[in-house]
Amino acid sequence: MTHNLAEIDAKGYWRAVVRLTLSLLAIWFIVSYGAGILFRDLLDNVSIGGAPLGFWFAQNGSIYVFVALIFYYCRAMNRLEKKFNIEG
C-alpha cells in the first residue's frame, strides 16, 4: 500500500532507523574485527572446546552473530514500522 509521506513522522522514523542500524553495526564490528582480529591474542587465552576463543570467533562465532543480527534487525524494523504507522 502506498501512503503519503506528509501523514507520517518520517523524520522521527528515519532517526530511529539510523540509531538501530548504527548499534547493530557496532556489534557487527565487535564480533568480527574486534574478537576475530584486533583482540584475538587476548581472547585466545580462553578456550572453547580446545579452540582458542579469538580463532573460533574468526572462523565460526562471528558468522552465527551475523545471522542473529539480521533477524533481530527484521524484527526491530517491523516493530518500528508498526510504531510509526508505516505499512511496508
Binding site: Q59, S62, I63, I70, Y73
Partner: peptide
C-alpha cells in the same frame, strides 16, 4: 587462522546488505 578473512569477509557483507 589466515583463512578467516574469507569466512568473515564473505558472510559479514550480508549484514551490510540487509541493513544498508
Amino acid at each position: 587462522y589466515g583463512g578467516s578473512v574469507y569466512l568473515m569477509g564473505w558472510t559479514g557483507g550480508y549484514v551490510l546488505l540487509a541493513l544498508l
